[in-house]
Design a protein around this nucleic acid. Sequence first.
DNA 1: GTGAAAGCGCTAACAA
DNA 2: TTGTTAGCGCTTTCAC
Lengths: 326, 326
Amino acid sequence: MGDVAARVGVSRQLVSLVFRNMPGASDATRARVLEVAEELGYRPDTAAQVLRRARSGHVGVLFTLRHPHDASIVEAIYPAAERVGYDIALGASGPGRDERKAVESLLAYRIEALIVIGPYVTPDKLATLARQIPVVEISRPSDVSGVDSVRTDDHLGVHLAVEHLHALGHRAIVHVDGGDMPGAEDRRSGYRTAMQTLGLDSDIRVVPAGYTEEAGARAARQLMTDGTLPTAIVAGNDRCAIGLIGTFTRRGINVPGDISIVGYDDSQPAGLSYVDLTSVRQDATQLAEAAITAVSERLDQGRDTSTDIVLEPRLVVRGTTAAPRL
Amino acid sequence: MGDVAARVGVSRQLVSLVFRNMPGASDATRARVLEVAEELGYRPDTAAQVLRRARSGHVGVLFTLRHPHDASIVEAIYPAAERVGYDIALGASGPGRDERKAVESLLAYRIEALIVIGPYVTPDKLATLARQIPVVEISRPSDVSGVDSVRTDDHLGVHLAVEHLHALGHRAIVHVDGGDMPGAEDRRSGYRTAMQTLGLDSDIRVVPAGYTEEAGARAARQLMTDGTLPTAIVAGNDRCAIGLIGTFTRRGINVPGDISIVGYDDSQPAGLSYVDLTSVRQDATQLAEAAITAVSERLDQGRDTSTDIVLEPRLVVRGTTAAPRL
DNA sequence: GTGAAAGCGCTAACAA
DNA sequence: TTGTTAGCGCTTTCAC
């Protein structure tokens, strides 16, 4: 930095101002500084900035690499964070890296807040974290005080799915659920109340599964073993739905001819031409923005009460749902 | 840190030693320091460490969030890096975050080397980078001097796939390729020479596609339009294979009954029960370890020549390949 | 717009 | 094992 300053013939703090886009330097000087910096290959050192500043300006994001929908959220977090002036520090967890280590490492970077995507952090761990920095959990209603949550209205989302199937003429609608994954409980209860509202109490049936293709595949096999298939299924999420479809199709059961299937998330695979899955859309961009907004409110506006932001889901009708065969 | 030292009744540098696992502190003191640190919630500040040390001890990893196989590699990089004492700084690129920004930000963290996973960095950009720090490219043979590369022998991998199909009795074997994606060129040429070696010159046919499900789906539609289908396909990668299978299956073409399909990567979806895809395995763990080894050789052993590490692929036979229908 | 001075939290080199 | 000293690259404050 000294080199740049010397070469341009200005002071070091002027160079610092320029790089931080602060007022105090003329446009000409600004341009000159940037030009010389480029020439010299100078780049401000993040570590030094973080060390010197009172605040690090970094928000940690804890995520797993396995879920396409989570990946979309991570992607959307970057531009959202940029808009409010925060940098992102990524922490991956998964086999080979437990989330404890990932969190420790993020904290060592002095992150000011943590956004948690995905299901693998226990509530009490979150509570401990929340005592140190603001924590926002995406996709799961947080029962932990001090932790904000951002999610879509899963109750309503499943309601939309069930209504859609009912409108097509289905009555035997099964819910293949997400077990204890984020949002699964709300989706289950949404299914139950929707069925009741539509007068289908006696058709209520929940098959326990999970948020993976393999869980969907297992549920499909179980349904086939059990005897008569339902005419429609609301799956816990898209991955589960895809596992169901793959398994049914392999056994000669046609989707949507023999059975209609609705997914949840409207993640990238749902839109693929040969999948063409009817799904409940959880907008990744909206979730990301809401999460960053929650962070910014805590950090920049001094909010100190928990918030639970609930976004509205939307049903995206595609080719895996049709009227039941008569 | 001062607090911890004071509380234990030792010097600050002793505390520093303990946290860096350096010799010079007795076991008893070590335990006491750790205990008090825990109690006080003390954690060494990474920014300060990086700033002070001559070397940052960080290796950057540039990746996209879209490919399951890349995700597996990222996961495997963590334990590999830990073993040689490096920390990982993740930089995601994708829609919402271009790789230029991602790289800039990693560089600003003073990373000592960069591992690039995936295809989106242009060779001349890599060359520029390689002048600043060691760069390792995973999955693609690097044509850029100064850039190391780690990959599997794609030529051989496809050869194994073609041989397997030939042994089952196939002759009309098509390659649905990966376009200009990493490794695609080698896979194409591997296909050609394998076909020639087996005396199937006249059956050689390459359909241009890409590394995504949708590219596979398009290729499948094109093959169906073209008239007679081949009896077997070697796909550019697993995602492409899955797109092929999905599209064929939807049109009533049975896999492997009507057509056998081999993927490439042996990524997570290949092993799913209802996919059960025969595929060429590229071991993510091995790739990750080799990449870290290459980094460590440059950084710790002073290697200054480029290296190109080629791992051996292995064919994993599953359910999407069978003898052709007579 | 400048220049001087201080210090973020840590590591390193050395002598004790 | 300890204390001392110095300084990583930057931001901040203040008087000019």
